[in-house]
Structure formats: structure tokens, C-alpha cells
């Protein structure tokens, strides 16, 4: 028993010469994986327009109800959120909104330094959330793969879409 205790003491002593595992945070930061669930952003499609189509699926999926938004349309029929608000003091960064999103608009990023002194500042509006890039999916453009006709894209012009058939025509 005594020998095992002495061996423990010796082995603990040897740890003096090991490198500490501590990461001294503000100076050095850990490299986070790309899929880290941190700050939530709204992305744009490659054309530079908002990806979000205001379908409310993220707000429905959110277990803490921290997302609120209001859908609206522009004159060409393109849906977008009138406002989009995430209360980060409630958000648990579960990533369900990202999984629910049908257009890759809402995405979680590896940024985590979001502390604030005033609780109201934790509520992010659309101008805080919207970024100028496509996020993790560079080439995806929802309105280019969907059949919906919007401004600048008529029926049948989407990817892998045939021009619409005129049902009343007799020609083959």
C-alpha cells in the first residue's frame, strides 16, 4: 500500500514537467470545427439576395421560442421576412432552426463571443443577423431550383426544369 502511494506521489510529481493543457483564452483561442453551433446568421444566395423565404419553420422548430418573424412579399412575389428577430438570451444553440430551414438561410457559425452587459442587447434584429455571403453552401440558390415564378425568372427557367407544357395546344 505504501509503495503504491509513493508511486502515485512520484508520478504526480513528474507532471511538473508536462505541458499544461490550459488555453489562455483571451490571448489564444481554440480552433473550432466548422460545424460548431454558435452565433446564428441569415445568409444570402449567390446573387446577393436574401435566402429566407419566411416560412416560419425555424420559429416552429425552436424549442425555446426565441425566433420571431413576419412574412411579406415584394411586388414580384418573392417572399422575405419583414422583420426577423432572435432573442439570444433565450437561444440554446441547439441548431434545430438550421435543420428545419428548407433554403439554407438560417445557419449557425463558430462564433461564440456574444456577451453583453445589457440584456436588451441580446435581441438581434435582421440587420444584425443578415450577412453578405452564402454561408456554408456557396452555390445553393433556392429560387433557382424551385418552380415558383418570381421577378427575373419565369416558369420553366429553373434548374432541371422543362418549359411548361401548354395543355390546350394540340401540337405534340
Amino acid at each position: 500500500m505504501l509503495l503504491s502511494n509513493l508511486r502515485t506521489i512520484w508520478l504526480t510529481f513528474l507532471h511538473l514537467f508536462r505541458k499544461a493543457v490550459t488555453i489562455e483564452y483571451p490571448e489564444e483561442k481554440e480552433k473550432l470545427p466548422a460545424r460548431w453551433r454558435g452565433r446564428i446568421v441569415l445568409t444570402r444566395d449567390p446573387d446577393g439576395q436574401e435566402r429566407c423565404v419566411a416560412c416560419y419553420l425555424c420559429a416552429v422548430a425552436c424549442p425555446v421560442d426565441c425566433i420571431s418573424l413576419q412574412a411579406t412579399q415584394d411586388e414580384t412575389g418573392r417572399r422575405y421576412p419583414e422583420f426577423f428577430r432572435i432573442n439570444f438570451s433565450r437561444c440554446i444553440f441547439c441548431g434545430f432552426c438550421e435543420e428545419a430551414c428548407p433554403t439554407y438561410a438560417i445557419q449557425l457559425t463558430p462564433e461564440y463571443e456574444m456577451s453583453e452587459y445589457v440584456r436588451q442587447n441580446m435581441v438581434y434584429e435582421k440587420e444584425h443577423l443578415l450577412i453578405n455571403g452564402p454561408g456554408k453552401y456557396h452555390d445553393y440558390n433556392f429560387y433557382r431550383v424551385s418552380g415558383l415564378a418570381i421577378g427575373g425568372k419565369a416558369k420553366g427557367e429553373a434548374m432541371n426544369e422543362d418549359p411548361p407544357v401548354d395543355l390546350r395546344s394540340l401540337l405534340p
Partner: peptide, 8 residues
């Protein structure tokens, strides 16, 4: 203690 526990 920290050094012996691989901390700083």
C-alpha cells in the same frame, strides 16, 4: 497544484 494537474 495546478502544475501537478497539468493546468497553469
Amino acid at each position: 497544484l495546478a502544475l501537478w494537474q497539468d493546468r497553469l
